[in-house]
Design a protein around this nucleic acid. Structure first.
Length: 378
DNA sequence: AACGCGGGGAA
DNA sequence: TTCCCAGCGTT
């Protein structure tokens, strides 16, 4: 056996033994229910274990089976996902679960082609479901696995390239010990999460340090090689806290976002992009610019607002956009022709009080603003 | 291959 | 602050 084969052998057996001894007790590891494994893997995409745990527990309690999730109103699913981010994951998951109900009798399929064809299931998630739920010898290569493999085998390819992931999948598949695909793949990810971390890896406690080529070369901190992502583009926006009066006293105007795109179908406060000159005008002292921009924006939905006063700042960073928000309080202008007629709202708008927050799914940045406002009013 | 798509924890 | 994550869909 050549040297590389020995290193592979050592890695596989050492990692598998380490995982079985040190694995964390996580909710989705308490059963082999393929649907539960699937839900956990979707939630874990780009999201840390500690963040996912409470979401996973609530989700499978509310939607314990494929049928339960397939039949649930989309609004409820989105609400259960509130705060997790990447909301298309929730929509795709429900769409895929309906597909499983229709085409596979409600049983999560166990072949690569069938699982991979499900909405929201890519190469990583397909491998994870097949190996963890069905113990099939398929690789499950995510950023964590690529970090571990690039270090142990000293692979200097850019992990942002698709070809590198294919290389890693081939290697990962070869490493799977006979009959132990699920434990081995989870061990790979567990090592990446607990020991072989992005910064300052804990090599001294690593079960496979002895033959790690990255460490032998003193390269462990420099790997994996990864091209830098573009920084998020800044956007300055004005946000309207439109206060109701009369029957709507104490309530605020919110609206639902479009079917597609950023934060699809989530609820939000009305807001509009600030013009470039807003960065040189002190907006807190002079609300006229914001008032004009928001009035013009809401006018497109046949809503007229009165004077606005600055209320607070907020900011939020997405993976690709950085929002700087200036929030203003204002009220609707009564129609001049029908002074007592309540303004007619477009169907995607509605008035809410604090009690309605439990039903509607808001992105975190709007939750913070709404909670600040309602808490101060209470 | 490049880009759009959230949010939060760790260093 | 900065980094970067248990990725996938679209174009």
């Amino acid at each position: 056996m050549n040297l590389l084969e020995q290193k592979k052998q050592f890695f596989s057996t050492g990692l598998l033994a380490w995982y079985r001894r040190h694995k964390r007790d996580l909710p989705w590891r308490r059963s082999r229910n393929p649907y539960h494994i699937w839900v956990s893997e979707i939630m874990l995409q780009q999201t840390r274990v500690d963040t996912v745990i409470p979401y996973f527990n609530r989700f499978v309690e509310k939607f314990p089976t494929v049928e339960a999730l397939a039949e649930a109103p989309e609004e409820e699913v989105l609400k259960m996902w509130e705060g997790l981010g990447y909301y298309s994951r929730a929509r795709n998951l429900q769409s895929a679960v309906r597909e499983v109900r229709e085409n596979y009798g409600g049983v999560v399929p166990d072949t690569k082609e069938d699982v991979f064809s499900l909405k929201g299931v890519g190469p990583y998630t397909a491998g994870a479901i097949l190996s963890i739920a069905y113990n099939k010898p398929e690789p499950a290569v995510d950023g964590n696995v690529m970090r571990v493999l690039s270090r142990y085998f000293l692979i200097e390819d850019d992990i942002m390239k698709g070809s590198t992931r294919v290389t890693m999948e081939k290697l990962a598949k070869e490493l799977i010990p006979e009959g132990a695909a699920g434990d081995f793949n989870q061990g790979l990810m567990e090592l990446g999460a607990m020991v072989c971390t992005p910064k300052s890896p804990s090599c001294l406690t690593c079960p496979v340090m002895e033959h790690c080529m990255g460490r032998e070369a003193g390269m462990e901190e420099a790997l994996p090689v990864k091209k830098k992502a573009k920084p998020p583009r800044p956007e300055h926006r004005f946000v309207a806290l439109v206060e109701g009066d009369g029957e709507q006293a104490g309530r605020l105007l919110v609206r639902q976002r479009p079917q597609e795109g950023l934060l699809a179908r989530m609820w939000e406060l009305p807001h509009a992009m600030a013009p470039p000159e807003a960065s040189v005008v002190p907006v807190q002292d002079d609300p006229s610019l914001a008032q004009h921009v928001l009035a013009a924006h809401l006018e497109e939905d046949n809503l007229a607002i009165g004077p606005a006063s600055w209320y607070m700042q907020a900011e939020h960073t997405f993976s690709h956009i950085h929002w700087e928000l200036d929030v203003y309080v204002c009220r609707l202008e009564r129609s001049a022709l029908l002074p007592d007629h309540p303004a007619l709202l477009p169907s995607h708008y509605r008035w809410i009080g604090p009690e309605d927050m439990a039903q509607l799914a808001f992105p975190n940045v709007f939750l913070r603003i709404l909670n600040t406002y309602f808490r101060q009013k209470a």
